[in-house]
């Protein structure tokens, strides 16, 4: 095992950021840490890279304990923190030269050129870091992570804030680097893991809630479905009635002032593998109360919805869609 995290817990004062997280990554594997912001992804990475010790639990990288053998761990890791902190007054080449010195890379000049080439910042070599766009800073962050040709790459939100072209490029680069390295990356975007990662660990509120391959995750959620129901009737009553139907996970009333006349559309999420007669049961419940059933439509679950299903344990309030994971910070 290249990375082993056992029962990692991190407390900041009274706040628990990470609670008994256990996972692993094999050599040559690209592991995705998926979860909403504040789930504990960055905390996990900061522990794995030796930046800070866990409150309890242990983690090993390439067999070395991150606390006991911190320096050995750090020798084997390339890390890109979420905010990509660089020294703005240095040129790209000077900055990478510094990182090469700090990591004691042999044949440093070649390593700097290689890293700039791989991360596609070679044409910006003599530009001052502070003048680079967000996308280029991200690339420089990646270049410094790979400069010492590390066995393990730890990338915190590597595509955050990039435009679509840059995202595609970055994912391709990560896949290429991941061929002979262990990569652990974090993201709150589900499609990202299915495109880049071999395996996914889903974290929420400091806990590992699921661990699977991207395709395995989709299969697990295959039984889940969503449909939209339009009903004429008192909003709150209708929502409550639908929610009481067995097999319904959650009901969200859409904000549709336009339709008026007490007509509202509700998004209804079924629990996974709840069977196909659910639509009928909902229809019967609505009609049974004497409300007007105007329309029922089945909808495809997006990966974001799958994610929401896995990470939220209690009924979601009306405005839940406003904080869908893709938008949360």
């Amino acid at each position: 095992m290249m990375i082993e995290a056992i029962n990692l817990t991190k407390r900041y004062g009274l706040r628990v950021a990470l609670q008994g997280a256990t996972f692993h990554a094999a050599r040559g594997e690209i592991l995705g840490l998926l979860g909403p912001n504040g789930a504990g992804k960055s905390t996990t990475m900061r522990i794995l890279t030796g930046y800070m010790p866990p409150s309890s639990g242990t983690a090993r990288v390439a067999g070395f304990d991150v606390v006991e053998n911190s320096i050995e761990v750090r020798r084997r890791i390339g890390y890109m923190p979420e905010s990509v902190p660089l020294y703005p007054e240095m040129t790209v080449r000077a900055y990478l030269d510094f990182v090469g010195r700090a990591k004691q890379v042999s044949r440093r000049e070649d390593a700097v050129e290689w890293a700039m080439d791989a991360a596609r910042v070679d044409h910006m070599a003599d530009t001052i870091v502070g003048r680079l766009s967000k996308g280029y800073k991200q690339r420089v962050g990646l270049a410094q992570a790979i400069i010492a040709d590390p066995e393990v790459l730890v990338l915190d939100e590597p595509t955050a804030g990039l435009d679509p072209n840059q995202i595609i490029e970055t994912r391709a680069l990560i896949r290429r680097l991941g061929r002979d390295r262990t990569v652990i990356l974090s993201t709150h975007i589900l499609p990202e893991v299915s495109m880049t990662c071999d395996r996914v660990v889903i974290v929420n509120r400091g806990q590992v809630v699921a661990e699977d391959t991207p395709s395995g995750l989709s299969q697990r959620m295959a039984g889940a479905e969503r449909f939209a129901v339009t009903v004429r009737g008192p909003r709150d009553d209708v929502a409550a009635t639908i929610a009481l139907v067995p097999g319904i996970a959650r009901v969200n009333a859409r904000d549709e002032a336009l339709t008026g006349d007490d007509i509202t559309t509700y998004d209804v999420d079924a629990e996974p593998s709840s069977g196909s007669d659910l639509v009928e049961a909902v229809a019967a419940a609505v009609v049974g109360r004497g409300w007007g059933l105007r329309e029922m439509r089945r909808q495809n679950l997006s990966l974001e919805d799958v994610f929401l299903q896995l990470t939220t344990s209690e009924p979601v309030p009306d405005d839940a869609m406003a904080v869908a994971p893709s938008e949360a910070g």
Partner: peptide, 14 residues
């Protein structure tokens, strides 16, 4: 304040 310490302290330096 700039956050560069996070990267600095994960380099193999004491």
């Amino acid at each position: 304040s700039s956050g560069t310490i996070e990267l600095l302290m994960t380099f193999p330096l004491t």
